[in-house]
Simulated assay, not measured.
Amino acid sequence: MERRTFLRGAVIGGSAAALGGTLWRGAAYADPAQPGAGPYGALGPADANGIRLPQGFSSRMIARSGEKVTGTDYTWHNAPDGGACYADGEGWIYVSNSEISPGGGAGAVKFSAAGAVTGAYRILADTRVNCAGGKTPWNTWLSCEEVDRGYVYETDPWGVDAAVRRDAMGRFKHEAAAADPVRKTIYLTEDVSDGCFYRFTPTTWGDLSAGRLEVLTETTKGKGKNKTTVIGWAEVPDPSGASGSTRTQVRTAKHFSGGEGCHYADDTCWFTTKGDNRVWQYNAGPGTLELAYDASQVNGTAPLTGVDNITGSASGDLFVAEDGGNMEICLITPDEVVAPFLRITGQSNSEITGPAFSPDGTRLYFSSQRGTSGSSSGGITYEVTGPFRG
């Protein structure tokens, strides 16, 4: 995927290497995606589920909180949140967190190759406020607790192996995770107003029992027009948070306004911050940082607000869910156009969570966390099918 080159004229000689980071100028920090016509056209009228979709797309309800998933004995959990899909040789599995406390945890729905629901079950229980998370390359689900000194739990989407708490990944208000198989590390967001962006590099790739937790850092050099900023990484001395919060242990840590969703593809990790309605782009190869979207820099009315969970399609489109806003999933195309993809009507007291594509890219799963009731017990999980571009 080709996007803006964040270092336009910013590197000064070889000083970036000497300082252990990459230099950029603040002036290069201002070319985010702008509103335009989306690749799928305008939204049509609301369908029977109250969802407005482009022509050629359709929706169906998969599950409701407090009710048994059709054809199964599993009662769908309250407040469905972050999710991911897994191929299983016969069809696929959609995993979904539960953002409640006590209880929390995560559940899963299993589908046949034709898309029929064939099972549903619990994969994690007795945890707290499981918000988002992330999929690993070895097909486990990282379920993250969004509480102070929360944990990451590694779970089995098939529900066979017991979940394992991964203490080495740090104790903080976890939000989302995204695996980078090239650098063999996992990026993590933190949902507080001065949160940080982390990466966890396991001692052995595929084994999260031990490793190094680092935080993204930012230092400056020079003044005025000659001012440059160095982006780097520093190890968190005490990942347990016992001696102080992880976000305050490194003096040069860069802080973000409420870290939310996190998605990796093509040497890039995108993550969102809800406090300032931004989508950030960390370019893992050169180690640079830029803005893919900033609501405050949009020409006209911002189509995307309340930025939250994020995922991507095979075409390179980013799909960003709104927490509030006007209950849309918006997409950001590789050519930097942002446009609504769908809108849920009649559920203004909810938020959209857990967007994830089926392995073949033809179905998009997501939830309205509080549904029409505005309560965590009113969650609804949907599937959208249609001609997604590959």
Rank of each mutant, 00 (worst) to 15 (best):
R3S: 13
I186W: 10
G115K: 08
G115W: 08
I186T: 14
V215R: 07
F388A: 09
E190Q: 14
G241Q: 07
A177S: 13
R122Y: 03
E67G: 00
A176C: 08
G275L: 11
K225N: 10
P303Q: 11
T362L: 04
T217K: 03
Q297E: 12
S240L: 04
G312E: 06
A28G: 14
T219A: 13
Q297P: 01
G91D: 02
Q55V: 12
T219L: 02
P237Q: 08
R25G: 14
S112T: 02
K274F: 10
D180S: 09
A18E: 14
T5R: 13
A177H: 05
K135R: 15
V160P: 00
H263D: 13
L208H: 10
F341M: 07
Y86A: 02
P39K: 06
C131S: 13
V250P: 08
I352T: 03
T72A: 11
A116L: 08
R212W: 00
A114F: 01
P334T: 06
A179T: 12
R166D: 09
A120P: 08
N226W: 07
G107P: 00
P35I: 15
F357I: 01
R122M: 02
V337M: 03
E90S: 12
P54Q: 05
W76A: 12
D148Y: 02
V164S: 13
G285C: 08
V95D: 00
L364C: 08
C131E: 12
S373A: 09
A84V: 09
P355L: 01
S193L: 12
P202A: 04
G71T: 01
N78G: 08
L19M: 13
F200Y: 14
D276F: 12
A87P: 02
I100T: 15
N78S: 13
G195P: 06
F366L: 04
Q347D: 04
P202K: 03
G285R: 14
E99I: 03
S315I: 06
K110E: 12
Q34T: 04
T353D: 08
A132H: 06
W280F: 15
A265W: 00
T273R: 04
C131Q: 11
G300H: 09
G378V: 12
S58K: 14
G378S: 11
G386K: 12
L53Q: 10
G325P: 00
V250Y: 05
D266I: 10
S193C: 10
A120L: 02
E322S: 09
K110R: 15
P340E: 11
S240G: 09
N97W: 01
T204V: 15
C196I: 04
L19I: 08
G107M: 02
R171P: 01
D47C: 10
E218D: 13
G312M: 01
S243L: 14
T217R: 05
N349P: 01
L364A: 04
K227S: 05
G324K: 06
D276W: 05
N49D: 15
N97S: 05
D238N: 04
P202N: 01
G56V: 08
S65T: 15
P286M: 09
A168Q: 03
Q297Y: 02
Y74T: 09
E336T: 13
E214L: 07
A178E: 04
L43I: 11
D156S: 08
R60V: 07
T333D: 01
T201K: 14
N49W: 11
T248D: 15
N309T: 10
A120K: 07
N283W: 00
I51Y: 03
R166F: 11
D317H: 09
